[in-house]
Design a protein around this nucleic acid. Structure first.
Length: 789
RNA sequence: GGGCCCGUAGUUUAGCGGCUAUAACGUCUCGUUCACAGCGAGAAGGUCGCCAGUUCGAAUCUGGCCGGGCCCACCA
């Protein structure tokens, strides 16, 4: 049927988006086609998805749609991340109560209330953008939207803990960790941010055991009590003579070793540095390396303890003030100055992070670094340079992974503790447990006691999210399906979470399955604002995709996402103007289709040389798209397709073939006209399929109108037949261009007659088409182009 | 401070040893050509960040510098 409407409008998108939302692309487990599984990143539900999410999911959708068209059974589920700190923060804000200060049941209730409001509205933009998830229903069947805080998901998280504990891959230990006194939990490195804060830097006079006076600078005088060593750099001539001597700590009068150590930097402070338990990461590294026993002077509540002597009970700042006064009185302060200091603070409470010891659960990783490195080297990463982020991270790992947290809205660590024999008691896996309020289903295996205390700690949310590929592939639910379908085909994710989500997933899945869990990893950069700045809530430059969808429509957004840049290689800027500009190509494509649809289809038969040429051009595109799409590159083919639509096909082929396709004056034979009509329809048909993953809505409507088919059920084009183009594309384009320009320069109509023309010899095969397109009288052929108007 | 990435037209970009350096958006000129004025035909616009080197030849390779981004580290 001919297309009537003069242009593509965004209003046409609404019904299609709705249609795909109510009856989407369900996942059929029994389908015999090879599986292509996409481990999509579950967005966090506390805020609506922003432009960056939508853009990257659009690319994932292009991948999914392409894979469907190339004969795959595509598992493309959406997950929603609902565990952990952001929800707790939102709950605290809304109810104006600290979760640490209310009963645990109430804390969890508060979080659940927040989550009730979040619903699916946060991902509404995905539906509007035409993302073809398997399902828009929340559930536990493969392909349905999964929630990381569902009983089903949490039971699997706990099951993996139980397995790993039994395999000896998890242990509990008392170690130094980042600790936030405000939130009262151990926090991960990724939960720390830095603030420039003014701090007093104090040079304090010490003495050595031989009576020599030395000066050491510090910002943490309250930690003097926990000092275990004084360091200078091995090349520092000023202090070489101190090697092997001891320093006496002021106030406390303890003897500590003076050592040469590269951790000390010659040009910082006086070149001498005290090592305390613990002022910073350097201290921690040093204590670990020297196997020193730290005397930690700070309690869980942020007060100083008995190690601090007379300052015991004071909070850190008060203790610091008091000890500085005492040092001043003793005449030991050489100099004080205020410095700006980048201080690690908790990213939620903004409290200074302290380093204290607590018992926590750890996943072993140090002894697996070599294996992890080979996994990191063998997994296929798009684009290749991003692999280095992972390798660098693996190289820099210095401790095992602390997985327990002292918070509330997260998966509980599924253990009980025997009050009699101290044994750790694990329940059978397969069920979701809340040990802090439930009785252990089993007695202590060692002493048979039933007097067990439920564990109160929860997991780091990365411990949850690092099993997403296992969850979507039915691990422990359907063994046969799981075994047949690992590794997971594709992990798409942002580069900023390579060292967390990607790394932890590879680690944990290796521990559980002994395999590399992904075949391919697609790592993307970011959509930044139109000034090139990263979007962030605090800066207030978050771009709302709903607004862009309202203004320009999904297809403009999608074409922009494909053509603005290669997201696996760098950031792309979000520009309203450029998204708007993308819409022009939609109009062009639509009108090309409208033009083609006005002709009868034509039958396959002898092809005119011009028609062979355009089909050959299209073949080049088909080959390019197949190759690039398969490597998750939509950028290169999208540019080529756009160019083909505007230039090659519309400007040149259509202009030349028009007369023949109309054949109003019977200048051509039926066979010649048929060849043009057949070619027009064939090109359109293939072109829509090439565009379908990028522009699912426009192509759907075109193919429905012209062929009455669902383009998304069609096979992706392959180069099936080759054609012999008798001339070079540039030769044709240059010739057309030269004739148009000559008429333009003379200010005459493009239809005006050309009396005589000398054209390249190779174009003789399409003499008739050229002659009628440009209205040329006499055509001769030669090396030099010339026309007489 | 360490690592990685990036500097090409006003903007976004292609090219990654060899034609006069791509194209799109924007700007300007002309045009109511029967698919499309949300269009067409053209034009202007660049010492390919800077400086050396390798080479017959460098936007492209190497080194240094300058500028930008991201990640990591930095409580002396």
């Amino acid at each position: 049927m001919p297309i009537e409407d003069k242009r593509w409008t965004k209003e046409k998108e609404e019904s299609l988006a709705k249609q795909w939302r109510t009856s989407p692309y369900p996942f059929d487990k029994k389908n015999e086609k090879p599986l292509f599984s996409v481990d999509t990143p579950p967005p966090y539900v506390n805020a609506p998805v922003h432009m960056g999410h939508v853009t990257t999911y659009i690319i994932m959708d292009m991948i999914a749609r392409f894979k469907r068209m190339t004969g795959h059974n595509v598992l493309f589920p959406l997950g929603l991340d609902r565990n952990g700190l952001p929800i707790e923060v939102a709950a605290e804000k809304k109810f104006k109560k600290k979760l640490t200060e209310v009963p645990r049941e109430e804390a969890i209730e508060m979080c659940k209330k927040i989550l009730e409001e979040s619903s699916l509205a946060s991902v509404e933009s995905f539906a509007r953008a035409g993302i073809s998830f398997n399902s828009w229903k929340i559930g536990t069947n493969p392909g349905e939207i999964y929630l990381t805080d569902s009983d089903d998901y949490r039971a699997l998280t706990q099951g993996t803990f139980i397995d790993m504990w039994k395999k000896g891959l998890i242990y509990e230990d008392v170690r130094t960790n980042n600790y936030c006194p405000g939130c009262q939990t151990t926090i991960a490195d990724s939960e720390i941010e830095y603030e420039d804060k003014p701090t007093i830097f104090t040079d304090i006079q010490w003495e050595t055991d031989t009576g020599e006076k030395i000066v050491i600078g510090t910002t943490r005088p309250e930690l003097l009590c926990s000092c275990e060593a004084v360091l200078y750099h091995p090349n520092d001539q000023r202090y070489k003579h101190l090697e092997g001597k001891n320093a006496i700590t002021p106030i406390y009068g303890r003897k500590v070793k003076i050592m040469a150590h590269p951790l000390a930097e010659m040009d910082k402070g006086t070149g001498l540095v005290m090592m305390c338990a613990f002022g910073d990461y350097t201290d921690i590294r040093f204590f670990r390396e020297q196997k020193l026993t730290p005397k930690i002077a700070i309690n869980k509540d942020g007060t100083l303890n008995q190690h601090a002597g007379k300052y015991e009970g004071k909070r850190i700042y008060a203790g610091r003030k008091a000890i500085l006064e005492d040092l001043k009185e003793a005449g030991l302060i050489v100099e004080q100055r205020q410095i700006q200091h980048r201080t690690p603070v908790c990213d939620r409470s903004k409290d200074d992070v302290e380093f204290i010891e607590l018992p926590e659960f750890y996943v072993k990783q140090l002894e697996f670094k070599d294996t992890l490195r080979s996994i990191a080297e063998s997994v296929s990463i798009h684009a290749e340079p991003s692999r280095q982020i992972l390798l660098d991270w693996i190289d820099s790992i210095a401790i095992d992974w602390p997985i327990s947290r002292r918070r509330f809205y997260a998966t509980e660590v599924p253990v009980w503790h025997c009050t009699k024999c101290k044994e750790i008691v694990l329940p059978p896996k397969g069920k979701y447990y809340q040990p802090w309020k439930e009785k252990s289903p089993v007695p202590c295996p060692k002493c048979q006691s039933t007097d067990l205390k439920g564990e109160e700690r929860v997991f780091d949310t990365w411990f949850d999210s690092s099993i997403s590929p296992l969850y979507i592939l039915q691990y422990e639910k359907d063994d046969k399906f799981f075994r047949n379908n690992i590794p997971c085909s594709l992990r798409p994710q942002g580069k900023e979470i390579v060292r967390t989500w990607l790394y932890y997933t590879l680690l944990k899945c290796f521990h559980l399955t002994n395999k590399t869990i992904f075949k391919d990893v697609w790592i993307h950069y970011h959509v930044v604002d139109d000034n090139g700045k990263k979007m962030s809530k605090s800066v207030g430059n978050i771009i709302d995709p709903q607004k862009l969808l309202d203004d320009h429509g999904a297809e403009s957004l999608r074409l922009w996402a494909a053509t603005e840049g290669d997201l696996s290689k760098g950031d792309i800027r979000c520009s309203d103007e450029r998204i708007k500009g993308a819409g022009k190509t939609l109009t062009k494509l639509w009108n090309v289709a409208r033009f083609v649809s006005s002709f009868p289809e034509g039958k396959e038969g002898n092809l005119e040389p011009l028609d062979e040429w355009i089909l050959d051009e299209l073949n080049t595109l088909i080959a390019l798209a197949n190759e690039k799409y398969a490597h998750y590159d939509f950028f290169t083919p999208a540019l080529a397709l756009r160019h083909f639509v505007w230039e090659t096909f519309a400007s040149h082929y259509l202009e030349l073939a028009k007369n023949r396709a109309y054949n109003n004056e019977d200048l051509y034979t039926d066979e010649e006209a048929n060849s043009a009509r057949y070619t027009l329809h064939t090109v359109l048909s293939r072109l829509t399929r090439l565009f379908a993953p990028i522009l699912p809505m426009v192509t759907y409507e075109i193919v429905k109108a012209t062929e009455n088919k669902d383009v998304h059920q069609e096979a992706f084009p392959k180069v099936e037949r080759t054609y012999q183009p008798p001339f070079k594309t540039e030769e044709l384009m240059e010739t057309n261009g030269a004739i148009w320009k000559a008429k333009q320069d003379k200010g005459i109509s493009l239809k005006a007659e050309v009396k005589k023309a000398t054209l390249p010899k190779s174009l003789q095969v399409i003499e008739k088409d050229i002659k009628h397109t440009h209205t040329i009288g006499d055509i001769t052929y030669g090396d030099t182009f010339a026309i007489t108007l």
